[in-house]
């Protein structure tokens, strides 16, 4: 229930999935708890509540963030996208579809965080952001292939205890490939699925 405004509460407006929500929040409330307990957006999961598992990953101003380490009052004015906001109506986002088709999950509890993270990974990679797995980080090297190793490195903040990692990497690779406009083919292209198949 919504407590009455007091020195420990503030009315804030959150921009979530393109909708504005005005609500009084306890200053101690995390963004994660505001989503789950106050706005009934329970797709964002609480796995550890201390920033270690990635289950609560959402997109804030287009970048992934763990919503358990962010106070709701600090999220005012930011553009927040949760798992409930990534599909286009009935059409699943390509990452969602790939997780569904390739069984990139088991219990499903880490899945919203994995999917939000994967969406940002694909964008970060396409924008040329390097990771610890990137072989050549010189600016002139351009965008390196999104290999399975790159995906594993970039997705490592999202734990999956069921151990669905292999399928998740395949799903991210498939969605990334679908997102890329067909190019003249520099380098060896997307290596993830090939690497899996080569075992």
């Amino acid at each position: 229930m919504a407590p009455a405004p007091s020195p420990t509460y503030s009315a804030i407006t959150l921009n979530i999935n393109g909708e504005k929500h005005t609500l009084p929040v306890d200053h101690r409330t995390t963004l994660l708890d505001a989503l789950r307990e106050r706005l009934d957006l329970t797709g964002t999961k609480k796995g550890c509540d201390q920033g270690q598992c990635g289950a609560c990953t959402v997109l804030i101003d287009g970048r992934r963030a763990v919503s358990c380490l962010q106070l709701a009052v600090a999220a005012e004015g930011r553009v927040i996208t949760t798992i409930e906001g990534v599909a286009e109506g009935e059409d699943l986002h390509p990452v969602q579809q790939a997780f569904l088709d390739l069984d990139g999950y088991q219990c499903g509890y880490c899945t919203p965080g994995q999917i939000c993270s994967a969406i940002a990974v694909i964008e970060e990679h396409a924008a040329g952001w390097p990771s610890a797995a990137t072989q050549d980080v010189r600016p002139e090297a351009g965008v390196q292939p999104l290999t399975a190793e790159e995906i594993r490195e970039r997705m490592s903040g999202n734990l999956c205890r069921c151990g669905a990692y292999v399928s998740i990497v395949e799903a991210v690779a498939q969605a990334a490939e679908a997102a890329q406009p067909p190019s003249g083919g520099s380098g060896d292209g997307n290596g993830a699925t090939e690497a899996e198949a080569a075992v």
Binding site: T42, I83, L92, L100, Y105, G108, T111, I115
Partner: peptide, 16 residues
Amino acid sequence: HTRVEGREKVTGAARY
């Protein structure tokens, strides 16, 4: 066969 509850799980609609 993909999971019958798969759509709920990838959209965040599955309630735990």
